[in-house]
Write a protein that binds this DNA or RNA. Structure first.
Lengths: 223, 223
DNA sequence: ACTTCGCATATTGCATTCAATATGCGATTT
DNA sequence: AAATCGCATATTGAATGCAATATGCGAAGT
């Protein structure tokens, strides 16, 4: 028997997919930024083959755009894209709420309560980046509690593509307060196992978020 | 000015993605079937590089599974997978119905009427493959009429992965008749621009379809 | 006879090489 | 002087070659 000192590590191209996706989601690679193969190969210290495979995957996920003989760029979002993605995500969130309210376990509920408390603390000290992360964590836990991995997968895919836009629009103090109140309602509905109520709250939550993001975006600017 | 004798044809890997996806969706490559690189390279008369890029993309789409050093296989679906995918698709269909009822144009409505008539004719002569195709075409038109390309994209992705299972379960004469009646209701709600009604009908339609597919599937068989 | 170990083979993962296309600069022409 | 054409260069697309890992068969041992 072999002792797996380093559990069968990801293949290089998978590794690169993860690292590149992270760079894009975290905003270190900006929208519309050119992704030269040479440059990225040096950065990751790999050859072009696994890099190119990774770029194809990220293109399939919608995070990068590939242009014939002109390389890859970080994908940008138009206003319409943002609207369409929120429209779909609102439905998916509603579904996740409906399912989670019915299926969530006490352990999962307790964990979310903990995350919520942490988020409130971040709000109290007005630490937006930390607040944002707890916020995302809560929504992810609700999706997990829905017990539907396909739902999670699809939601995460859209969420990753739009994350920058969501974060960038987190500005208004009063909207922030409203979002916190909405989160209180989410927790309430979860505890009450109110499927229909939670679905409605989450759907509404995302619709409002969409408006905020669009308002923050100049008419034909692209994210 | 150049006359595009052959419109800037797709790159090789994109071509291969399309052809391979088609082979899988149409069932010519069966679930769990091994996809040897050598074999596929000869089939498509290409080298391994674009083939491997294509396999990565299809794996990202969920149509194939990649195993470390053991090549690619056509992805299989468990009962749970089928349930989860239908759960998500039911929500997406409901959303598409809601939006389409509000946004559909007269032209689009007329086109769907035509497709519906063609589908009824296929039903009359009990031509299941043709019926199935018209059926899929109608749902696609409704999604298009929803005016949300992201919704379409996500739905198509799931639809492709589950298409084999849907088709394989198309057996019962009475269920077929019921499905036709449900489609009448869909058309009715569309003409009436009844957003909530159409959403409900489509959601229910998919829930029923899910039951049929699951019933058709032995306990731990995989698609 | 059955199980296990080890080697040969085949296949995949990655690097490198060759070919095709786009971009940018300079020369030439009007 | 401005615009256009053509060539040099750089970058991407595809193919081949080399290294690493898994699979399968056979031999040896219990």
């Amino acid at each position: 028997m072999t002792v797996a000192t380093s559990i069968p590590r990801l293949s290089l191209h998978d590794e690169v997919v993860v690292r590149l996706r992270d760079l894009i989601i975290r905003g270190e690679l900006l929208p519309n930024e050119r992704l030269g193969e040479r440059e990225l190969c040096e950065r990751f210290e790999i050859s072009r083959t696994p890099l190119r495979e990774a770029l194809k995957v990220l293109a399939a996920e919608g995070l990068v755009e590939l242009l014939q003989h002109r390389g890859a760029r970080v994908a940008t979002l138009t206003r319409a894209d943002v609207q369409h993605m929120f429209e779909v995500m609102a439905s998916l969130e509603a579904l996740s709420g409906e399912l989670a309210a019915a299926r969530i376990t006490e352990e999962q509920l307790a964990e979310i309560d903990g995350l919520h408390a942490a988020m409130l603390e971040a709000y109290r000290v007005r630490d937006l980046p930390v607040y944002f992360n707890w916020n995302q964590a809560i929504h992810e836990r609700i999706i997990i509690a829905s017990g539907n991995p396909v739902l999670r997968e699809v939601y995460q895919g859209l969420s990753a593509r739009i994350r920058r836009a969501r974060y960038a629009a987190n500005t208004s103090e009063e909207r922030w307060a409203a979002a916190v109140r909405e989160h209180e309602a989410v927790l309430g509905a979860l505890h009450a196992r109110d499927a229909a109520g939670l679905a409605a709250i989450l759907r509404d939550h995302l619709h409002k978020k969409c408006e905020v993001v669009l308002a923050h975006l100049a008419t034909d600017e692209r994210f």
